[in-house]
Amino acid sequence: MAELASQLQDFLAVLVSTRGDLASISAPPFLLAPFSVVEVAGAWLQRPSLIASVAREPAPERRALMILKWILASHKSQFYLGGSPSGGLKKPLNAFLGEIFLARFVEDDVNFHLVSEQVSHHPPITAVHMWDESTGISATGYVRVQMKFSSGVIVRQIGHVVVHVPQFDERYIIPFPSATVKGFLSGQLYPELFGTYKIISSSGYVSEITYSGKGFFGQGQRNSFNARVYHQADAMNPLYTASGQWIGKFSMREARTGDLIEEYDCLGSGNVANPVVTATEEQDAWESRRVWQEAISALKQNNFQKVLAEKHKVEMSQRALRAQEAQSGQVWKPLLFRPMQGEYKVFDSLTSEIQWELHADETKGVWEPDVEKIKNLKKPFRGDTTPLG
C-alpha cells in the first residue's frame, strides 16, 4: 500500500505540473481498467430491465421517477469504472480515433443493443446509441471529457443523452455530471460528483439531483445525493424525493407524506448484465476488444511492462495514420455517427425553460447516429484500412 501511495503521489506531481486539459494524459498502468473508454456507456445497461420498465408505466410522473432511479443505479459502474467503492477507481484506456464497441445487454426478455464510437481524438469525444427492439426505447448521446487539476482532478463532462420512449412519444434529456477525483495522498482514488443537474422530460416533469460527498473535516457521506421530482409548472411542490448514496442504498418517497416507495440497493439488487460481444478473434479490426486484447490481457496479469508496450504500439500506428491522411489531404470521417447541422430542435425544446448551455463548439457539434449504417454494418468496417496500419 505504501508503494502504491508513493506511485500515486508521483503521478499527482505530473498532473500538478501539466497545464491545460489532462484528458489525453496516459495514467500509469496500475491505474488502468482492462477496457477502453468506448465501453463506459455499458454502465447504463447493466440493469436493462430498469429502463425497459418505463415503457410499461402509464403515469408520466412515475416514468420520470423510474428514469431517475435508472440513472442513479448506473452511477457506481459509470464512475468507479474498473474499480469499486472499497478498492478505488480505475481509468479506462484512452480510445483511439474510430474505435468501435458493439454489445448486447440481456435480462429476461429485454435485449438492449449498444453501439459506441470514438468520433474524435483531439478533443476526445465518444458517441453512443442504444436501443431495445421489444420496447422500442432508445437512447443517443455523446460526451467529451475534460480534466484539469485544482486540489484534485476535476472531470468535466460535456454532452448529454436523449432517451426516447415511443409508446408515449416522450423524450428525456439527461446531463453528464462533473466529478472530482480524490484520494491521491491516501493511495485509494475515488470520485465525488458535485453540482445540481436536471433530467427533463417532454411531459414537463423534471428530476433535480444535487450531489454531495464527504467534507474536508469528515462530515457527510461519500457519494451522496438528494433529488426531487416535480412538474416544471409547479417546481415548489415536488411529487417525489430520493436520497442516499449512489454507491449503496437510496430511498424514494412520496414528497407530501414522506411514505417510502422503494429502497434500492445498488450493491444487492440482483446480478448485473454483462455485455454480450462477438468472440474477439471474430471481431472487426476496428472493434475495441480486438485491438486492445493484448493490453487487456496484460492488465489482468499485472504485466505492466507489456501494457506499456501494447499501448505504444497502438499510439504509434495512430500517429502514422494521421500522418498519411495529412500527406494525402484526406479528412477523417466517423463511421456510424455524424454531427447534426442547423437547429438542435430536440435539445432546444427540452431545455427551453432552463439555462442549459449546449457547448456544441467544444464537442464538434451535436452527434447523432446513422441508424441505417448501424443496422447494415458489415465487416470489414473500413475496407483495407485498419487502426494498426
Rank of each mutant, 00 (worst) to 15 (best):
D10F: 15
L12T: 07
A13V: 15
S17F: 10
R19M: 06
G20Q: 03
L22E: 02
P29M: 08
F30I: 09
F30V: 09
P34S: 08
S36R: 11
A41K: 15
W44S: 06
R47L: 10
R47V: 07
P48G: 03
P48F: 02
S49W: 08
L50T: 06
L50D: 05
E57C: 04
P58F: 01
L68I: 13
W70Q: 05
W70S: 08
S74N: 01
K76C: 14
K76P: 15
S77L: 06
L81D: 14
P85L: 07
S86M: 11
K90E: 13
P92V: 11
P92K: 11
P92F: 13
A95Y: 14
G98P: 03
F101H: 15
F105C: 03
V106N: 04
V110W: 05
H113T: 10
V115D: 00
V115L: 05
Q118C: 09
H121Y: 07
V128L: 08
M130D: 00
M130Q: 04
I137L: 07
T140F: 01
Y142K: 04
M147V: 01
K148S: 05
S150D: 12
S150K: 09
V153A: 14
R156Y: 06
G159S: 01
V162M: 00
V162A: 04
F168V: 00
D169H: 06
Y172S: 00
T180M: 09
K182M: 10
G183I: 11
F184L: 09
S186K: 12
G187M: 15
G187A: 12
G187F: 08
P191A: 11
E192H: 05
G195E: 00
I200Y: 01
I200G: 00
S203K: 03
T210W: 03
G213S: 01
G213F: 00
G220Y: 01
N226R: 08
R228Y: 14
Y230F: 12
H231I: 05
H231C: 02
Q232Y: 03
N237S: 10
P238T: 08
L239T: 13
Y240K: 10
T241H: 06
G248S: 14
K249C: 12
S251G: 04
L260R: 01
G270P: 09
N271A: 07
N274H: 14
N274A: 09
V277M: 11
T280E: 06
T280R: 14
Q283F: 10
D284S: 12
V291D: 08
W292P: 13
W292Q: 13
E294G: 14
S297A: 12
A298Y: 02
L299C: 08
L299F: 11
Q301Y: 00
F304V: 04
V307I: 10
V307C: 10
A309C: 14
A309T: 15
K311V: 15
K313Q: 10
E315G: 11
R319D: 09
L321S: 09
L321Q: 07
R322Q: 12
A326L: 02
Q327A: 13
W332I: 05
L335N: 08
R338Q: 15
R338I: 13
P339M: 10
V346S: 05
V346P: 04
S349E: 13
W356P: 01
H359K: 06
D361Y: 07
E362D: 06
T363I: 06
W367S: 06
W367F: 11
P369I: 00
I374L: 00
L377R: 02
R382Q: 12
G383F: 02
T385G: 07
P387D: 03
L388W: 01
L388K: 03
G389E: 02
